[in-house]
Each structure stands twice: as structure tokens, then as C-alpha cells.
Design a protein around this nucleic acid. Sequence first.
DNA 1: TTGTACGCGTTATCAG
DNA 2: CTGATAACGCGTACAA
Lengths: 342, 342
Amino acid sequence: MVTLRDVARAAGVSLATASRAMSDAPHVSAANRAQVARAAESLGYRPHPAARALTTGSTGTVGLVVPDLANPFFAAVAKGVQARARETGREVLVADTDEDVTVEPDVITRLGDRVDGLVLCSPRLPADRLGPLLAAADGPVALVNREAPDAPSVSFDIADGVRQALDHLRALGHDVVAYAGGPRSSWSDAERRTALARLSTGTTGDAVLDLGSFRPTHGGGVQAADLALAAGATAVLCFNDLVALGVLARLHARGVATPADVSVVGFDDVAAASLVTPALTTVAVPLARAGRVAVDLLAGGSPEPEHRRLSVELVVRASTAPASPAVTDSRPLSTDPEVAIR
Amino acid sequence: MVTLRDVARAAGVSLATASRAMSDAPHVSAANRAQVARAAESLGYRPHPAARALTTGSTGTVGLVVPDLANPFFAAVAKGVQARARETGREVLVADTDEDVTVEPDVITRLGDRVDGLVLCSPRLPADRLGPLLAAADGPVALVNREAPDAPSVSFDIADGVRQALDHLRALGHDVVAYAGGPRSSWSDAERRTALARLSTGTTGDAVLDLGSFRPTHGGGVQAADLALAAGATAVLCFNDLVALGVLARLHARGVATPADVSVVGFDDVAAASLVTPALTTVAVPLARAGRVAVDLLAGGSPEPEHRRLSVELVVRASTAPASPAVTDSRPLSTDPEVAIR
DNA sequence: TTGTACGCGTTATCAG
DNA sequence: CTGATAACGCGTACAA
């Protein structure tokens, strides 16, 4: 291994001068600066991260905690974090909690010792458990997709997304729209619900049906679809795209046409949303952007935590269409054995 | 910050003894060991990773390099790496090259300085560029989903997967099966092709049509589907599930029924494969397992690099069925405006 | 502007 | 079994 001492020797200067030259510090003659640079280059010198961390206290690393790397939502955020960190010369240490909120404190402390700051995606950790966690963290923490008073955060303008979706559906003539909600402990589900509540008390008097809470997965959507049908909804707004995809699949399996019979709207605009048939109408959310912003938030050492809210946009695709008479359970199931329900 | 010195002081022993006690080293009296443990516990002592790394030379960190974190294939591998690293008390530093092989050398050296070993997923880096890269790496490197003479690797029994898929298709009566290949520079595509070549010179004389190389994405599948139809194939085996999903979508859009008219087989068994309609028949590949094995391979300091090949299994779902008379371009397009081609 | 010397927190070596 | 003490590689007061 080639150390700074080797570089200094080769350049004919002292260790201190070499150090200053490498870190572009002032008080170094142009000649020496060039000498050192040349020596470092030719020797293939690379500073030892641990040694640097030991003296400076900064590791050049950001941590990322997500519930599930295989979930396209978090994968997209991770890409953004990754990209921004790399641009700013930092590396990213990633931890997947496997959807288990009980391990989060441990993961956070373990990671916390090795990083300069932490990007935390923990949609389902109860608010009262989040506070202590933030307090225990020694470095800066940036929250993604949720807000809290004590930490900077980047989230999305969910209320506006819900509004756009509802406007779209109502313009299409849907009076009975149902909401397939996410986990009760989810901050962003709460956001959707309050937005929905505010929007459904409008002058038109249209209310939106609460189908309940579902696991934020394909399976959750399957359950929600049955309930939506039973309730006679002509449109269903989903907690996220995974749920929407499940609704789509279940509707298809039960012989209900989408969007002819019922319209479906998702949330997030995950990659799969545009690839499925029919392509999903969904509220596009700048996931990667959020990841990038989160790492920038780590640096901002303002006293008051900064809360950035990114705007969202409804993407209309093929899963929504003008309302037709309600479809209920009395509708005959398909006789095609491929799609029939036993 | 509480250091080991504080612990030693509190326990009434020297720094050296405290160090030994903490690292479960021998030559420490049971009494002192307990004292130190108690002191560390009550003070909330956590060893400083950088300091430890500086002296030991080991960082307790493994690196992971992938082309795209948002690709479900790599996301699954990443989960495995993550899980195994955590189990063994290590953290993982992840780098996403964004499918750009030209940045890989840089990424690898940057990461290499901070980790004890590197798990490298680089399916498309040309073999002649991989060799030098491995030579330049200072720590151990484990390859995932490709093999090379100079590094340990974990890959899949692709030949057997292809065989299983082909057997399945032939048993269903498909004489004309087409292969929608992946990138030419891909090691695993080459594996599929040689397996295919060996299998198609059998006594039956059935050959498999080579549709060409496609981008390993949904879009690639769309292109492949048109070619498969033009060639009159009754079944198409795809490079991976993303391609297969593209084929499925395109077939549907062109009014060709799956699996009634043409069967489709994927590769990898990514999560989406079982969620789509019709559910995809595909060769399941233990992605997460591979990730776990890869981190274990890093530790094994054998002189000869170890090459582990994981077995795969065809999962028969709804996208394959007995062959029907070939469908060609002469077949009338659907008149349903939803699916018609302009 | 340059060099010397100390400290960062740990582990490891060597006497006791 | 225990305790000083010397590294590890680098940044940085302080002195020159």
C-alpha cells in the first residue's frame, strides 16, 4: 500500500505539505503542489478512508435504511440516493430491515457509527417510536416519505395527488369511488385519508367509500378488489401501484372489465405501472428525486429541520374510463375456466 | 463519545485488558472480563469502526456493485447480500453503475478501498475487460451470474434450466420454439445459447429459432414478439422475465392469445412473473441465495477460486399450454380498438 | 510557506 | 494474566 508518506518522500516535501497539497488547502507553493500531485499520480496514491475518518470524524459515507430493497418504490429511492451520493463523492451504506420495524433501532445504531448521515425510509414505524429513534441518532437523519417535527424530510404532495386523481375520476362520471387504503401505521396513508376526507365533503356531496386497510402489496389489492365489487364501486383509488396491480388482476380474474366496468387508479408510478395491461393510471411521484434531495438535506445544517414536499402528477393511462352502471356481485362470473373463481 | 479508554478506566483495568476482553481474546481473567463487559454496557460503549479498521486492516464491510438497483433481478441479489452480511456482522456498501460499464473500474476502485471484499454483478462487461479489473482489485472479488477463471463465482445451472424449459415445451407438442436472446456481451446469454445449440441437435431434429439479441427489458420483449409471430413460432423462450413480460404484452396487444395460440417461458422468476396475467411459466433462479453465497465466497481464502453453480427449477404457470397450429402475420388482427394495431 | 509533532481509537507486541 | 507502548495513516496546531 502506498501512503501519503511515500508520496511526500517522492515529491521531496514533508508529510504536512503533501497532506495540504492533496486536500487543496492554502499555504502551498504552486511548485510543491504540482510535485505532490505528480508523485501521487505516478505512485497511484489513494488516501486511506479509515485513517481519514479517524482524524476528521467524517466518513464520506451516507447510510440508507429501507424496509425492502426489492420493493420498486424503495429501489427507486435507493437509486436516487446512490446517484446523488456518488456525485458528491460519497458512498452509500445500505440496510434492508425486511419490513421488520423492531430491528430498526439496532440497524440504525449499527449503521449510524459508520456514516455521516442517515436517509431513513420507514413508512410504518409508529410516530411515537420514531421520535426516540431520531433522538438516539448521533448524526443527521433525513426522512423520506413521511414528516416529523424533529428531522428534515422529503415527502410528496399527496393531498394534491389525491385531488388530481379524484378530479379525474369525477370528470369521468364516477360517483362511487372507493379507496383501498394502506397500513394504518403508515404516515402516507394517513395523508391520503385526510385529503380524501377533505375532498369528499365538497358541495357535490360525493363521498368516497373506505374499503379499509390492506397490506401494501399485490395480495392486498386482491382483497380490496372483492370488497370494491361488493360495494358496487365504479372506480377504485389505491394506496399504491402494487395494490392497484392486485386489484387489476383480481378484477380480470372475476371477469370484470377494466376500465369498461370499473376504473382503477394507482399511486407512485412504479415501473411496472406502465407495462401492465391495461396500463395503469396513477399518481406519479418523483421517487429518485426524493432520494437525491434526501442526501442533500443531510448536509444542510440549519437549526430548523427543512421539510421539502415534492409535487406529483397524475398520469392518465388505460385503466380509467367513463363510468358505466355499477357492477356488483350479482354479475355472473365468467365461464372461462381460466378465469373462473372456484 | 465513549471510548475504550473510558471503559477501561471504569472497569479499573488497563486499555490492553479492556481491548482483549471486548474482543473475546484469551488471557483475561473471568473477573476482569465481566467487569469490562459491565462497564461497556453501562457506558453504552461502541467500538469506533474507523479506528478498528485502521489497525486491523479489516473494515467489516462488503461492497456490492450492480448495474441497476431498480432491476428486480439485482434487487433480489442485493437482498441476499444484505441479509447474509448482516448475519455475519458486516455492513454493505452498494454501488449502482446505472448500466454503464465504463464507470465500473472507477466504482470498483473507489469501493474497493472501503471494503473487505466485493460482490460484483456485471453481466455485460466484456470478458477481456473483466480480467484486468479483477487483477487491479486488491481485495477478494466474488462474481455473481457469470464465471471467470480468476475469481470465485456463484452462477446458475443455466443449461439445465434451458433443458427443463425445452422439455416442457416439447412435451406440450411445440415443434417450433423461438429464443428471444439477451445482449451479446452477456455471459449468461452465451450460456443459454450453447445449451440451446446442444439441445437442438438432438435425435428429434427439432431446432430452436434464434430470434436475435434484444435489450433485456420489457421493450426488448415487445420487439421479440413481433419477430416470433413473423417466424411462425408457437412458443418463445425468453432471455429473462422482463423480456417475457414484454412478449406477453405485445402478444396481447396484437390479439394473439396466450397460452392458447403461443406459449411463453421466462427466466429468473422475478416477483412480477407470478403476478401478471397469465402468470408466467419461468425458470426459477435462487437470486437471494446467490447473494448470500457470494458473500460467503468472499471469506473462503482458498488458492483455487471456487465456482458454485446453483440449481434452478422450471415453474410451470399459466403462460404455457399445448401447441396449436402456428400463428403467423396472416392472422387477422383483433378488431377490438383497445388492442388493435394501427 | 514549510516542517515537526501530536492525537484520533484500536489492536498487537512485548515485557513483567 | 496484565500493563505499557508502539504502530495504523492522516490532519492539523504550532513552531520555524
